[in-house]
């Protein structure tokens, strides 16, 4: 069973539909026990970092997520919250990945909104996804390139579009909104 962590942020319906198109049923839940015993966990995220962290804390998920042993996929803000800290309201994240999330330069249009190329792809998460394929992104803050970077993109500078540490994966783009390349990524995650 695939659990999508439910902490009341934004559009998760599209993610569920994307999984359904791959023939996979998912459950949207914040139940500690259910999440812990599910085969894979998807950690979505949209909106403000502080609101999202507060909601995770309300139900104790901030303690649960770092201790999960199965593959976990953080999407968008979900990926950023895997990190130590974000400049967005100077909020502490889950501290799984040792780095700080930074805001894009004021010289760029912020948020970055649209389709961008992904490059330097590593790990099985990017099986059958080509260098230079496009993914859909909407974000104002970014994870810099670090040891855990497994995919890069460029917007004014080079940044991490995907990260991995042990069983924790994070993607800045929205695979559920990234047409066939995004669907392939979700399929790869399900097959990990």
């Amino acid at each position: 069973m695939i659990a999508i962590i439910d902490y009341n942020v934004g559009n998760v319906k599209s993610l569920q539909f994307a999984l359904e198109r791959l023939g996979v049923k998912s459950i949207l839940t914040n139940d500690y026990g259910l999440i812990k015993k599910s085969e894979k966990v998807i950690f979505p995220g949209q909106g403000a970092a502080s609101t999202a962290m507060d909601k995770l804390k309300e139900v104790g998920l901030d303690k649960l997520i770092p201790n999960l042993k199965q593959p976990v996929l953080g999407i968008c803000l979900g990926m950023q919250l895997l990190c130590d800290n974000t400049e967005e309201g100077d909020v502490d994240g889950l501290g799984i990945i040792k780095c700080n999330v930074i805001k894009f330069s004021d010289k760029l249009k912020v948020p970055q909104m649209g389709w961008n190329k992904v490059k330097k792809l590593r790990t099985r998460l990017f099986n059958k996804i080509n260098e230079g394929d496009y993914m859909y992104l909407v974000h104002s803050y970014f994870v810099p390139t670090i040891n855990e970077t497994i995919g890069q993109s460029e917007y004014g500078l080079t940044y991490s579009v995907a990260v991995q540490k042990e069983n924790f994966f994070g993607v800045q783009f929205h695979p559920e909104k990234s047409s066939s390349a995004g669907s392939q990524l979700l399929k790869n995650f399900l097959e990990l």
């Binding site: 934004g10 949209q46 104002s140």
Partner: peptide, 8 residues
């Protein structure tokens, strides 16, 4: 914007 984020 506050409730759902400016991205949407």
């Amino acid at each position: 914007a506050t409730r759902f984020g400016n991205q949407c």
